[in-house]
Nucleic acid binder design. Structure first.
Lengths: 228, 228
DNA sequence: GTCTATACCTGGATAGAC
DNA sequence: GTCTATCCAGGTATAGAC
């Protein structure tokens, strides 16, 4: 699970000076330790939340001394913000297929499948996001009100267009998104409950495929989508 | 939002002695402060999680000095457990209507509406539960594997019976429950996201009614339930 | 039973050697 | 650039007066 974006690194003006006027884009990952730190931080923040996570635990997970965390990321809050930024870029993706002239069954089905895949491959990212949400979204409130709202507004127009053409029931697209997001992310966020009810110690690939197929069917049929 | 069950009170053997052999059931709420403490604790644990919550904040919310919390509940963990116990009793309710000989449309529709009402009236309970889940359910794992699993197993048999009678599509009832739980609780747990996308500062009663109606329609139609 | 004052400890952050 | 040792704030829990 490699991490690729480091938007909130601690500023190192000395190094910037040393590079003179060299283009910013020339900057690259200075040390693999940074990636390890972000990966370890995601796991710890996912399980313990911001308050419950300790820098010592993250340092252990990354295999570096505690002080190095404060060298790369000045504060615990900065490190948390960097982890959040990574998860948000993940969340915005996958909606490309939902357009006015797309086939609803294909577009919605593919979107749900993609969301479920994301939940399976990045469960910790889902949990970090959920934690932030539960605590009132102090860090990402602006993101939700701007980028996310704009994206949903645009996609909602496409779905309303489908409805005008009789390709889907006249539903509220926003609440449909809430339902899809919740139903997919629950397999990461509420994993202990899912495992307990199913009587299993982990959610198997086959089980998740069954869940995905059922959810796709439920949504398409429930919205009156004509299967092309 | 009165709190009614106090299963994990700190033990006061002195008082028990004073009561001699008096029946346990004769015990009653010794002080309204205890109810205030539990109510305040639920709110604080919901917003901050277990680690993020502080005893000082809870004491402030309840209007009592910090030390009194440790008098009624020996530790922070005991207080948290007491809050959790209250929420779990809430969660188990509302499934009474789902029986083999019930009408699927009525039973499922009523259940979804009841769950959504619960989300609206007890959002903090939902958030405390979600927090515990996200952190791996260390306190309530046993409850999930026993009481909850037994309940879902029983209700699943009823739904499978409906399917044999052709009253509903042959779906997996467990995943249907996961979807319903997630789709309803998201309006409490992910409230900041819902508000941001809708462009509102709070979720109005009317908005939640729309969401409820749409979800009931989605589920009933999506499962091929015949409307009686 | 109730509250004030305090002891003790965890954990974030930093100074300074290498 | 990297790490060891340390400082200090904040928070749980308790002792002891009333």
């Amino acid at each position: 699970m490699p991490v690729t974006a480091f938007s909130v690194l601690a500023e190192t003006t000395e190094e910037a000076d040393a590079e003179r006027e060299a283009p910013r884009r020339k900057e690259h990952i200075r040390n693999a330790a940074v990636a390890d730190i972000l990966a370890a931080a995601e796991a710890v923040f996912a399980r313990a939340g911001f308050a419950g996570a300790t820098m010592a635990e993250i340092a252990d997970g990354a295999g570096v001394p505690k002080a190095n965390l404060h060298y790369y990321f000045r504060t615990k809050a900065s490190l948390y913000q960097a982890v959040l930024d990574n998860t948000l870029t993940l969340w915005l993706s996958e909606t490309d297929g939902i357009t006015m002239d797309a086939d609803p069954a294909t577009a919605l089905g593919d979107y749900i499948r993609a969301k479920m895949r994301l939940t399976a491959t990045h469960p910790d990212a889902s949990r970090v996001f959920a934690n932030e949400m539960l605590h009132g979204a102090p860090q990402i409130g602006d993101y939700l009100r701007n980028e996310l709202k704009a994206l949903v507004d645009e996609k909602s127009k496409a779905i309303e267009h489908w409805a005008k053409q009789g390709k889907i029931d006249p539903i509220d697209p926003r609440h449909l998104f809430f339902t899809i997001w919740a139903a997919t992310q629950t397999y990461a966020d509420f994993q202990p409950q899912v495992c307990a009810v199913l009587g299993k110690s982990k959610i198997s690939r086959a089980e998740l495929d069954r869940a995905t197929d059922q959810l796709v069917t439920l949504v398409l049929k429930g919205c009156g989508v004509k299967i092309a």
